[in-house]
Design a protein around this nucleic acid. Sequence first.
DNA 1: ATTATCTATAGATCTATAGATAATGC
DNA 2: ATTATCTATAGATCTATAGATAATGC
Lengths: 228, 228
Amino acid sequence: MSEPAVVPDMITVMSQQPPSRGQRRKLRTRTALIEAAQEIFAERGDLEVSIQHITEAADVGFGSFYNHFSSKAELLDAALAEALESHAAWLESVLAHVDDPAEVFATSMRLTGRLVRTRPQTARVLMSGRGALLSASYGHAPHARRDIEAAVAAGRFVTEDIEVALACTAGCLIATMHLCDTAPEASVEAIADQTVLNVLRMFGMQDDEARRIVALPLPVDEPPSTTL
Amino acid sequence: MSEPAVVPDMITVMSQQPPSRGQRRKLRTRTALIEAAQEIFAERGDLEVSIQHITEAADVGFGSFYNHFSSKAELLDAALAEALESHAAWLESVLAHVDDPAEVFATSMRLTGRLVRTRPQTARVLMSGRGALLSASYGHAPHARRDIEAAVAAGRFVTEDIEVALACTAGCLIATMHLCDTAPEASVEAIADQTVLNVLRMFGMQDDEARRIVALPLPVDEPPSTTL
DNA sequence: ATTATCTATAGATCTATAGATAATGC
DNA sequence: ATTATCTATAGATCTATAGATAATGC
């Protein structure tokens, strides 16, 4: 998989109500392909499957693939970008009313970690992106950066290097989400919250305050049932 | 890539002096295939390349591939396992004389992070293993676990869950190694040391002590020139 | 004599495109 | 009339194996 270089064009189109019936039909096909790719990728861990297999899973004519993508890698990029964007939009909407940046940051992580149980397929797609979850220039990454910077400005976090801090945050989150897959009997919630506690400690937060933030009631239990 | 399930058989064979000339010839072919796979993987980020391409890169007859591996995935597992084992052996030999487990732990991380500059190909292979660097049951993972447990027992680390701690450590390290690739102008050494400082803070270590450990002189600059 | 490597190839894919069909727009 | 989808297929791989060649062991 290559880095998802270009991206938000189609996503922008998708968030507006597309004008014509024809546009909507085209979008349906594209969406079916992306969803099929996400499912296959989540199940198999890669997209090493024929384009024919993908179009069959999407219930789309084989040739239609090339109306939308010129290679499997391009489809995979689009699938990852879509997952990143819709996850970010969900977090943003759920946490819009919270003021404390440390709380927004921590609760975002707790909800993301819980995806392993609530939306296993989405979780696997996000986990696969080579850290794109927090290193891309779109999706949730800019929000996380903004939260960390605000928390530092407010004197709640201490960190010497924001880039390293972001990478470590993403690394802890993704690695412990993988851990949930490895140890299926373990509690996803406990692992996610323990991870956030670790990260807050990494940011120099006092133990009691970190524990308070990690034990806050969550605003919602699950992401909306349709991610696309 | 699947998890590297089976593994150490051949590695065990490799560490002993193989008995006969024939055994050595066979091992040479196998090693050539593994090295070629590591190189291709480091360059391309995957092994989506024909077996013929691999055997040509290894300068080995096409059919010989099947004397050693029955699929590309199997070769990839072996290549990852080899990288994990030889890296662990190097760390172990370099740090054998150090007593303080916190110091062994931290210096291992600092040296591993520096691989991005000293052995870029090895670094990419280790980075790719879905956290296998510290979650496998072989390689450096058991050593890291042992070091953390000893440090906790000695009262130098605080952590509530050793599994989460290991995963976070691996996650921080791998994610910041990726960061080095993204920002090639940044100092690999500074990023590695900052990462270890973050992790030590995550383990509840006092700031001044963490800074001391991260600034210790390194026992060596580079891994031995032949990893295989 | 045995074992590993190499060469050549049959059969099974898989990709990309061309042309036909169906849906929309006006 | 235009645009997207679908079906069918040519050409290009790619895999796995069979048989030939070369290297070792005794």
